[in-house]
Design a protein around this nucleic acid. Structure first.
Lengths: 119, 119
DNA sequence: AATTACGTGCAACAGTATTGCAAAGTTATC
DNA sequence: GATAACTTTGCAATACTGTTGCACGTAATT
């Protein structure tokens, strides 16, 4: 199962929701996939994004990804097709937080239309 | 009711979830507050943030806020106390999107510890 | 007074996430 | 090879947030 789920994420190259992953199988229970994804996350194979679409999405980490530390990148949610892309090539600028605030992690989601949905 | 809900948001000066607002009243229904917040949002009095905590939070807009247009700002979610602060003084840098991607909106949430939770 | 519009509470429902439990499968151990 | 120990899976149930339908009550309007 883990290999199959990994395969789906690898094939799609974008962030998928639990439901979307479930759709790609015929007879696999949500909970199984859910737990598989959780395992992946615990082992830093994938990262999750809450893009505001209502469902958390999951995407593969890069080989050298250390997720919570420095794999920060923008995510792009297309408001037309609903797909979420990882914009790994765009660096996230350092944020100058006010005194007393301590940076741990960040979630930067940009919304708009993706190349497939221009018209 | 609208005055009361507005008062709560004004007093707290941070983003509150529907549930948190509900807690500040004794006998007011979720749906009433929900609809009140929706009304506020339709009239651009408040903006909503999905900080990834599972619940959407709501905060007052500034007087000159035009929300969906240029009131973009960072939000800070404290991983200890769960409070969400608006970091209105920090400008959001322009993001250089790849060809074909069209910017409409953004949601930038930073996680960490807030001044109240340092130790 | 009759009509209309609006606000509220209750209850129900939707969608996603999550967990308990038992069955099925797998691996280790003797 | 049999048994025990552990893992994985499916089903069902539950939690939580958000959302809507409906009925009732109140206030404004004619």
């Amino acid at each position: 199962m883990r290999e199959l789920v990994y395969g789906v994420l690898d094939k799609n190259r974008k962030a998928l929701s639990l439901y979307e992953i479930e759709q790609q199988f015929d007879n696999v229970d949500r909970s199984t996939i859910f737990r598989t994804l959780k395992t992946f996350q615990d082992n830093l194979l994938i990262h999750s994004v809450d893009d505001g679409s209502g469902a958390v999405k999951y995407a593969l980490c890069d080989d050298d990804c250390t997720c919570s530390l420095d794999d920060l990148h923008y995510h792009f949610l297309c408001t037309k097709c609903g797909q979420t892309h990882c914009l790994k090539n765009i660096p996230i600028p350092a944020v100058d937080l006010p005194e007393g605030f301590n940076f741990e992690n960040a979630n930067f989601v940009i919304k708009g239309t993706c190349p497939n949905c221009q018209g």
